[in-house]
Amino acid sequence: MEELFDILPSEWAERFLETQKERIELSLKKEGKLSLLQSKAGGRGYLPKEQGYPTNEEGDPLSLLAQINFAEMPQMENYPEFGLLAFYVDVQDDLYGLNFENPTRQEGFRVFYFDDLGSESLTAEEQDMFFVDIDKTNIYPIVDGEYKITGQVSDQILLHDSIEFEQEFGYSFFDLSEHILGGDEEKAEKLYNLMSEESQLGGYPFFTQEDPRTYTENPHHDTLLFQLDSEYNEEDGVINILWGDSGVGNFFINKQDLINRDFSNILYNWDCS
Rank of each mutant, 00 (worst) to 15 (best):
E2W: 01
F5T: 11
L8Y: 02
P9D: 14
E11W: 09
E18Y: 05
S27K: 14
K29D: 12
K29S: 15
E31W: 02
G32L: 11
K33G: 08
L34F: 11
Q38T: 15
K40I: 08
G45D: 04
E50A: 12
Q51C: 08
G52M: 03
T55N: 06
D60I: 03
P61N: 08
Q67L: 06
N78I: 12
L84P: 04
L85K: 03
Q92M: 14
Q92R: 11
D94R: 09
L95T: 14
L95K: 13
G97H: 01
N99Y: 12
F100W: 10
P103Y: 03
T104W: 08
G108D: 03
F109R: 02
D115F: 00
D116H: 05
G118N: 14
E120R: 11
Q127C: 05
M129L: 11
D135V: 09
T137K: 10
T137G: 03
I139V: 07
V143N: 02
D144L: 04
D144C: 06
G145E: 06
L158W: 02
D161K: 02
S162L: 05
E164L: 11
E164S: 14
E168W: 05
E168G: 06
F169V: 11
G170Q: 06
D175L: 14
G183I: 03
D184G: 05
K187N: 15
K187R: 15
E189H: 10
E197F: 14
E198Y: 15
G202C: 08
F206V: 09
R213Y: 07
T214A: 15
E217I: 12
L224T: 05
D229N: 15
S230I: 13
E234Q: 09
I239E: 13
D245W: 13
V248P: 03
K255W: 02
R261A: 10
D262A: 10
N265A: 06
N265D: 15
D271H: 04
